[in-house]
Design a protein around this nucleic acid. Structure first.
Lengths: 123, 123
DNA sequence: GCACACTATATCCTTATTGCATATAGCTGG
DNA sequence: CCAGCTATATGCAATAAGGATATAGTGTGC
C-alpha cells in the first residue's frame, strides 16, 4: 500500500482489503445481480478497490472456495461475444453469510474508532 | 468468533483483529509506556480485545518479529517477584510505523463505511 | 494469415499470518 | 511438594494472499 506521504508500507499485507474483505465484497455484489468472475473484478471498483490492489488469481480462487462452502453457485454461460463465462449466483447461505459480515464490519469499525480515539487522547 | 445471533462463524479468521491489528495495538500501548509481553496482553483489553481472542503465542511471536524489524527494542529486567521479564520499548521507527497504521485504519474505516452504505442502499 | 490485445478462467509456488499445543522455568500458597 | 500463576518461546498446521504462468476464444490492424 502506498501511503499519503508517498512511502511504500514496509510490511506485507498492510492493505485495506485485509481480513477477507474481498470475500464479503463479492457476496455484496452478487446480492444485487449474477455476475461472472471477470465482471466482478470490474465492479469491485464500486467498493473502493483500486486496480493495483486487485489480484485475478485471488479473485478466482476465492470464488471457487466460496462455491465449495456453498455461499455461491455457478453456471457456464455461452456468450455471443468472447469465451464462455462462469456466472456466479448467491445462495441463501451466502445471503446469511453476508449478514454476518455486516455484523463483523460494524465491530471492526468500532474497534478502529476506539484505536484512533486512544491514539488521539492518550498520546 | 461468536456472532450476536449466537452462531459460530464458519470461516477461520473472520475476527475483528484481522490485518495485523495486534501489531498496531502493541505499538500504541508501547507509545504510552514500556511494558513486558505478559503485561501487554493484559492491557490489550483497553483496545477492546477479549480474553478469548487473545493468543499468547501470537503475542510473543509478534513482539520478536517487531523487534527484528526495529519497531521496538527490549531489555531483560530482573524483578523482585516472579521470573525475569523482557521489557519492550518503542523506537523512533516504531513511532513512525504507528503513524502509518493510523492512516491505514482511517482508510479501512472509510472502506467499511462504504461497504455498509452500499449494503443498506442497494439491497 | 498472423501478431497482438482483450476477455475469461485456472493452477502452481511462495510467503505471511494466525491458532493450537507444548516446553521451560521461576515463584507462591497451602 | 505440587498446583497454579507469571513469563517467554517454539513446533506444527491451516488459512490467506500475491506473483507468475498456462490456456483458450475473439476481434483488430496490417
Amino acid at each position: 500500500m502506498i501511503m499519503k506521504n508517498g512511502k511504500e508500507c514496509f510490511c506485507h499485507g498492510k492493505t485495506n482489503k485485509t481480513g477477507k474483505f474481498l470475500e464479503a465484497s463479492l457476496l455484496l455484489l452478487l446480492k444485487k445481480e449474477c455476475v461472472h468472475g471477470y465482471g466482478l473484478m470490474e465492479q469491485l471498483e464500486k467498493l473502493g478497490l483500486t486496480e493495483e490492489e486487485m489480484n485475478v488469481s485471488t479473485l478466482y480462487r476465492t470464488l471457487r472456495k466460496m462455491e465449495n462452502h456453498g455461499f455461491v453457485s455457478s453456471d457456464w454461460k455461452e456468450s455471443e461475444e468472447g469465451p464462455k463465462k462462469r456466472v456466479y449466483k448467491i445462495t441463501d447461505e451466502g445471503l446469511a453469510e453476508l449478514e454476518d459480515w455486516i455484523q463483523v464490519f460494524e465491530e471492526r469499525k468500532k474497534r478502529i474508532e476506539k484505536f484512533i480515539s486512544v491514539y488521539e487522547t492518550e498520546c
